[in-house]
Design a protein around this nucleic acid. Structure first.
Length: 214
DNA sequence: AAACCATGCCTGCCTAGTGG
DNA sequence: CCACTAGGCAGGCATGGTTT
């Protein structure tokens, strides 16, 4: 029974091997003959595998993937259907910020991504809220323009253009623009969920206040 | 009952050839 | 030049018979 289950599972996996291999080969700009020559097989073998006429042996698949610098685990975990939008035009970026903070999220509609990337602009005297933020994630960013005060775990850091930060967001943290000039930051976070001053505020999951104390 | 061996089937892969 | 098909070969595996 176990063997039957394994065979069934392998059968369904094998159904996709040919299509996947064909896509990968074309992504590398190779013909069946070129790939076959590169890995020491014949073009007909590549053809039959790609048309799902045969299921390649592990050794053959390893050889073929070697021709495109890919491992077997990488091959089976690759999912082309999850590939979504590549380029996000400036006008497409959704502003999820609140008063005093422009928070433009890149790829906010991509639910499969594990990364959140944002372009943030703190207006003069704006901050991320009176309460310290804390959420299970890792964040990193760079100040492009202006100056910002970053408090992480009780330590205050003053950042200028070119300065970067990276910290575990579980530590209580807060951003504050003490100057009168805007401060522009690019910021990334993994995992993509629970972005404190954008998605969560927008969704009213954590009703934080974004102050503009002037 | 266990181990060994012969047989046939299945499958991956090859060469040669075809059609677009 | 390209992808694909037909026919054949070789190795792996399951099965059944024989021997110990």
């Amino acid at each position: 029974m176990l063997a039957l289950g394994w065979l069934t599972k392998w059968f369904f996996m094998a159904m996709e091997v040919g299509d996947k291999l064909k896509t990968i080969r074309k992504m590398h700009g190779l013909s069946q003959r070129e790939l076959a020559k590169r890995v020491g097989l014949t073009n007909s073998t590549i053809s039959m595998i790609e048309s799902n006429a045969v299921s390649p042996s592990i050794s053959s698949l390893k050889r073929i993937l070697g021709g495109v610098s890919m491992s077997i685990p990488e091959f089976f975990t690759l999912n082309f259907e999850q590939q979504s939008q590549v380029v996000f035009r400036a006008e497409q970026l959704e502003d999820t910020g609140c008063e005093g903070i422009e928070h433009k999220l890149v790829g906010v509609t991509d639910k499969t991504s594990n990364l959140t990337f944002a372009i943030i602009e703190y207006q003069g005297a704006a901050d991320s809220g009176t309460q310290m933020l804390s959420h299970a994630a890792e964040v990193a960013g760079t100040v492009l323009d202006g100056e910002i005060e970053l408090t992480v775990g009780g330590t205050l850091y003053k950042l200028s253009p070119g300065d970067s930060y990276k910290f575990c967001a579980k530590l209580p943290h807060r951003f504050s623009n003490k100057s009168t000039k805007p401060c522009k930051i690019v910021s990334a976070q993994v995992p993509a969920k629970l972005y404190p001053c954008a998605l969560t505020i927008k969704a009213n999951l954590f009703p934080l206040t974004c102050n503009k104390s002037q």
